[in-house]
Protein backbone atom coordinates (compact mmCIF):
# COMPACT_ATOMS: atom_id res chain seq x y z
CA UNK A 1 0.00 0.00 0.00
CA UNK A 2 1.28 3.48 -0.82
CA UNK A 3 2.03 5.55 2.26
CA UNK A 4 0.81 9.18 2.45
CA UNK A 5 4.40 10.47 2.33
CA UNK A 6 5.02 8.48 -0.88
CA UNK A 7 1.82 9.88 -2.38
CA UNK A 8 3.08 13.39 -1.63
CA UNK A 9 6.34 12.54 -3.39
CA UNK A 10 4.46 11.25 -6.46
CA UNK A 11 2.37 14.46 -6.53
CA UNK A 12 5.58 16.52 -6.26
CA UNK A 13 7.10 14.49 -9.12
CA UNK A 14 4.04 15.22 -11.31
CA UNK A 15 4.36 18.94 -10.49
CA UNK A 16 8.10 18.90 -11.30
CA UNK A 17 7.46 17.16 -14.64
CA UNK A 18 4.75 19.71 -15.49
CA UNK A 19 7.24 22.46 -14.62
CA UNK A 20 9.84 20.94 -16.95
CA UNK A 21 7.27 20.79 -19.78
CA UNK A 22 6.49 24.50 -19.29
CA UNK A 23 10.24 25.20 -19.27
CA UNK A 24 10.64 23.24 -22.52
CA UNK A 25 7.89 25.39 -24.06
CA UNK A 26 9.68 28.55 -22.93
CA UNK A 27 13.06 27.34 -24.23
CA UNK A 28 11.96 26.03 -27.64
CA UNK A 29 8.86 28.11 -28.46
CA UNK A 30 9.00 31.38 -26.51
CA UNK A 31 12.67 32.37 -26.26
CA UNK A 32 13.93 34.19 -29.36
CA UNK A 33 16.75 32.72 -31.44
CA UNK A 34 20.21 34.10 -30.74
CA UNK A 35 21.37 36.19 -33.69
CA UNK A 36 25.02 35.08 -33.45
CA UNK A 37 24.91 31.45 -32.30
CA UNK A 38 21.57 30.31 -33.75
CA UNK A 39 19.55 27.42 -32.22
CA UNK A 40 22.48 25.91 -30.28
CA UNK A 41 22.37 28.86 -27.83
CA UNK A 42 19.19 27.30 -26.36
CA UNK A 43 21.50 24.85 -24.54
CA UNK A 44 22.24 27.82 -22.22
CA UNK A 45 18.91 27.59 -20.33
CA UNK A 46 19.35 24.06 -18.98
CA UNK A 47 23.17 24.13 -18.87
CA UNK A 48 23.39 27.12 -16.51
CA UNK A 49 20.38 26.09 -14.39
CA UNK A 50 21.80 22.58 -13.93
CA UNK A 51 24.97 24.17 -12.55
CA UNK A 52 22.89 26.35 -10.17
CA UNK A 53 20.93 23.27 -9.00
CA UNK A 54 24.24 21.43 -8.40
CA UNK A 55 25.64 24.35 -6.32
CA UNK A 56 22.48 24.34 -4.16
CA UNK A 57 22.62 20.55 -3.71
CA UNK A 58 26.26 20.76 -2.60
CA UNK A 59 25.23 23.57 -0.22
CA UNK A 60 22.75 21.08 1.27
CA UNK A 61 25.60 18.54 1.66
CA UNK A 62 27.47 21.17 3.70
CA UNK A 63 24.38 22.03 5.79
CA UNK A 64 23.74 18.33 6.46
CA UNK A 65 27.41 17.72 7.28
CA UNK A 66 27.51 20.66 9.70
CA UNK A 67 24.27 19.44 11.35
CA UNK A 68 25.86 16.03 11.79
CA UNK A 69 29.19 17.29 13.17
CA UNK A 70 27.49 19.80 15.48
CA UNK A 71 24.52 17.84 16.80
CA UNK A 72 25.19 14.29 15.52
CA UNK A 73 21.99 14.72 13.48
CA UNK A 74 21.32 11.52 11.52
CA UNK A 75 18.73 13.45 9.49
CA UNK A 76 21.46 15.92 8.52
CA UNK A 77 23.66 13.05 7.36
CA UNK A 78 20.74 11.60 5.40
CA UNK A 79 20.09 14.96 3.71
CA UNK A 80 23.78 15.17 2.78
CA UNK A 81 23.69 11.68 1.23
CA UNK A 82 20.55 12.50 -0.77
CA UNK A 83 21.76 15.91 -1.96
CA UNK A 84 25.25 14.69 -2.97
CA UNK A 85 23.78 12.15 -5.41
CA UNK A 86 21.42 14.70 -6.97
CA UNK A 87 24.20 17.33 -7.10
CA UNK A 88 26.47 14.92 -8.93
CA UNK A 89 23.75 14.20 -11.53
CA UNK A 90 23.19 17.92 -12.16
CA UNK A 91 26.96 18.55 -12.35
CA UNK A 92 27.21 15.80 -14.98
CA UNK A 93 24.35 17.40 -16.92
CA UNK A 94 25.88 20.90 -16.83
CA UNK A 95 29.29 19.49 -17.76
CA UNK A 96 28.18 17.38 -20.73
CA UNK A 97 25.74 19.97 -22.11
CA UNK A 98 28.53 22.57 -21.87
CA UNK A 99 30.94 20.37 -23.79
CA UNK A 100 28.36 19.72 -26.53
CA UNK A 101 27.71 23.49 -26.76
CA UNK A 102 31.44 24.27 -26.88
CA UNK A 103 32.07 22.09 -29.91
CA UNK A 104 30.24 24.16 -32.58
CA UNK A 105 30.92 27.55 -30.95
CA UNK A 106 34.64 27.28 -30.09
CA UNK A 107 35.42 24.14 -32.09
CA UNK A 108 36.70 23.12 -28.68
CA UNK A 109 39.08 20.23 -28.20
CA UNK A 110 39.71 19.60 -24.48
CA UNK A 111 42.98 17.82 -25.22
CA UNK A 112 44.39 21.01 -26.80
CA UNK A 113 42.83 23.96 -24.96
CA UNK A 114 42.72 24.37 -21.18
CA UNK A 115 39.60 25.95 -19.72
CA UNK A 116 39.36 27.05 -16.08
CA UNK A 117 35.62 26.37 -15.75
CA UNK A 118 35.88 22.89 -17.27
CA UNK A 119 38.88 21.94 -15.11
CA UNK A 120 37.39 23.25 -11.84
CA UNK A 121 34.05 21.54 -12.63
CA UNK A 122 35.86 18.25 -13.31
CA UNK A 123 37.53 18.60 -9.88
CA UNK A 124 34.09 19.26 -8.30
CA UNK A 125 32.70 16.16 -9.97
CA UNK A 126 35.59 14.00 -8.72
CA UNK A 127 35.28 15.42 -5.15
CA UNK A 128 31.59 14.53 -4.82
CA UNK A 129 31.98 11.21 -6.66
CA UNK A 130 34.68 10.52 -4.02
CA UNK A 131 32.21 11.56 -1.32
CA UNK A 132 29.70 8.99 -2.60
CA UNK A 133 32.44 6.33 -2.77
CA UNK A 134 33.30 7.04 0.87
CA UNK A 135 29.61 6.57 1.69
CA UNK A 136 29.43 3.33 -0.23
CA UNK A 137 32.59 1.59 0.91
CA UNK A 138 33.18 2.85 4.47
CA UNK A 139 31.70 0.60 7.16
CA UNK A 140 28.31 2.14 8.01
CA UNK A 141 28.14 3.95 11.34
CA UNK A 142 29.25 7.10 13.10
CA UNK A 143 32.89 7.16 11.85
CA UNK A 144 31.70 6.96 8.20
CA UNK A 145 29.17 9.75 8.83
CA UNK A 146 31.87 11.94 10.40
CA UNK A 147 34.36 11.29 7.58
CA UNK A 148 31.71 11.96 4.91
CA UNK A 149 30.65 15.20 6.63
CA UNK A 150 34.26 16.45 6.55
CA UNK A 151 34.73 15.46 2.87
CA UNK A 152 31.41 17.11 1.93
CA UNK A 153 32.27 20.36 3.73
CA UNK A 154 35.88 20.58 2.51
CA UNK A 155 34.82 19.68 -1.05
CA UNK A 156 32.49 22.69 -1.14
CA UNK A 157 35.59 24.93 -1.29
CA UNK A 158 35.64 24.13 -5.02
CA UNK A 159 32.16 25.60 -5.63
CA UNK A 160 33.27 29.28 -5.43
CA UNK A 161 36.36 28.31 -7.46
CA UNK A 162 34.08 26.95 -10.23
CA UNK A 163 31.84 30.02 -10.03
CA UNK A 164 34.59 32.66 -10.10
CA UNK A 165 36.98 30.74 -12.37
CA UNK A 166 35.84 32.76 -15.39
CA UNK A 167 36.83 35.98 -13.59
CA UNK A 168 40.01 34.74 -11.90
CA UNK A 169 41.64 33.23 -14.99
CA UNK A 170 41.83 34.20 -18.64
CA UNK A 171 39.85 31.38 -20.14
CA UNK A 172 37.59 30.30 -23.00
CA UNK A 173 34.34 30.06 -21.04
CA UNK A 174 32.30 33.28 -21.23
CA UNK A 175 32.01 35.51 -18.14
CA UNK A 176 28.86 36.01 -16.05
CA UNK A 177 25.66 36.61 -18.06
CA UNK A 178 22.90 36.60 -15.41
CA UNK A 179 24.91 38.13 -12.54
CA UNK A 180 26.94 40.38 -14.83
CA UNK A 181 28.05 43.75 -13.47
CA UNK A 182 25.29 46.21 -14.42
CA UNK A 183 22.50 43.60 -14.54
CA UNK A 184 21.66 40.55 -16.66
CA UNK A 185 23.17 40.72 -20.16
CA UNK A 186 20.08 39.16 -21.81
CA UNK A 187 17.00 40.47 -23.63
CA UNK A 188 13.84 40.32 -21.41
CA UNK A 189 12.32 37.32 -23.30
CA UNK A 190 15.48 35.24 -22.81
CA UNK A 191 15.67 36.30 -19.17
CA UNK A 192 12.04 35.23 -18.59
CA UNK A 193 12.69 31.84 -20.24
CA UNK A 194 15.79 31.49 -18.06
CA UNK A 195 13.89 32.31 -14.85
CA UNK A 196 11.01 29.91 -15.65
CA UNK A 197 13.55 27.15 -16.40
CA UNK A 198 15.32 27.93 -13.12
CA UNK A 199 12.08 27.48 -11.13
CA UNK A 200 11.35 24.19 -12.96
CA UNK A 201 14.90 22.83 -12.54
CA UNK A 202 15.03 23.75 -8.84
CA UNK A 203 11.64 22.10 -8.32
CA UNK A 204 12.94 18.96 -10.06
CA UNK A 205 16.14 19.01 -7.98
CA UNK A 206 14.13 19.49 -4.77
CA UNK A 207 11.84 16.60 -5.72
CA UNK A 208 14.81 14.34 -6.42
CA UNK A 209 16.43 15.24 -3.09
CA UNK A 210 13.11 14.50 -1.29
CA UNK A 211 12.81 11.11 -3.02
CA UNK A 212 16.45 10.20 -2.31
CA UNK A 213 15.99 11.31 1.33
CA UNK A 214 13.02 8.94 1.68
CA UNK A 215 15.02 6.08 0.12
CA UNK A 216 17.91 6.75 2.53
CA UNK A 217 15.51 6.85 5.49
CA UNK A 218 14.14 3.43 4.53
CA UNK A 219 17.68 2.08 4.09
CA UNK A 220 18.56 3.33 7.61
CA UNK A 221 15.41 1.70 9.03
CA UNK A 222 16.32 -1.65 7.44
CA UNK A 223 19.92 -1.42 8.74
CA UNK A 224 18.69 -0.56 12.26
CA UNK A 225 16.32 -3.53 12.17
CA UNK A 226 19.08 -5.87 10.99
CA UNK A 227 21.41 -4.68 13.78
CA UNK A 228 18.62 -5.06 16.39
CA UNK A 229 17.89 -8.61 15.14
CA UNK A 230 21.59 -9.53 15.36
CA UNK A 231 21.83 -8.13 18.90
CA UNK A 232 18.72 -10.08 19.90
CA UNK A 233 20.18 -13.26 18.42
CA UNK A 234 23.52 -12.71 20.21
CA UNK A 235 21.69 -12.05 23.50
CA UNK A 236 19.61 -15.21 23.15
CA UNK A 237 22.77 -17.26 22.46
CA UNK A 238 24.50 -15.66 25.45
CA UNK A 239 21.63 -16.47 27.84
CA UNK A 240 21.75 -20.19 26.98
Amino acid sequence: MTEPEDRRLYALTALALAGMLVAAGMIFLYAPQDALQGPVQRIFYLHVNSAIAAYICFGMVVAGGVAYLWKESVRGDRLARAAATVGLVFTTNAFVMGMIWAKPIWNWDPSKTWDARVTSTAVLWVVYAGYLLVRRFATPGRPAMRLAAVVGIVGFVDVPVVHFSVQWWRTLHPGPVIDAAGGPALPPEMLLAFMVTMVAVLLLAGTLVAIRYRIEARRDELEDRAVAAQLELAASHGSR
Binding site: T13, P39, V40, I43, V89, V96, W101, I211, R212
Partner: peptide, 30 residues
Protein backbone atom coordinates in the same frame (compact mmCIF):
# COMPACT_ATOMS: atom_id res chain seq x y z
CA UNK B 1 20.65 22.07 -34.80
CA UNK B 2 22.04 18.58 -34.24
CA UNK B 3 24.17 19.78 -31.29
CA UNK B 4 21.05 21.23 -29.66
CA UNK B 5 19.15 17.95 -30.09
CA UNK B 6 22.18 15.99 -28.83
CA UNK B 7 22.46 18.15 -25.70
CA UNK B 8 18.77 17.96 -24.79
CA UNK B 9 18.54 14.24 -25.62
CA UNK B 10 21.40 13.68 -23.16
CA UNK B 11 19.69 15.82 -20.50
CA UNK B 12 16.36 14.01 -20.89
CA UNK B 13 18.06 10.61 -20.66
CA UNK B 14 20.20 11.56 -17.64
CA UNK B 15 17.62 13.50 -15.58
CA UNK B 16 14.66 11.36 -16.69
CA UNK B 17 16.62 8.15 -16.17
CA UNK B 18 17.72 9.22 -12.70
CA UNK B 19 14.14 10.20 -11.77
CA UNK B 20 12.76 6.84 -12.97
CA UNK B 21 15.58 4.95 -11.18
CA UNK B 22 14.80 6.84 -7.94
CA UNK B 23 11.05 6.20 -8.24
CA UNK B 24 11.67 2.48 -8.81
CA UNK B 25 13.91 2.36 -5.72
CA UNK B 26 11.25 4.20 -3.72
CA UNK B 27 8.58 1.72 -4.80
CA UNK B 28 10.74 -1.32 -4.05
CA UNK B 29 11.49 -0.17 -0.53
CA UNK B 30 7.89 0.67 0.41
Amino acid sequence: MSYLIEAYAFAVMLLGGFLVYSLVQLRRRS
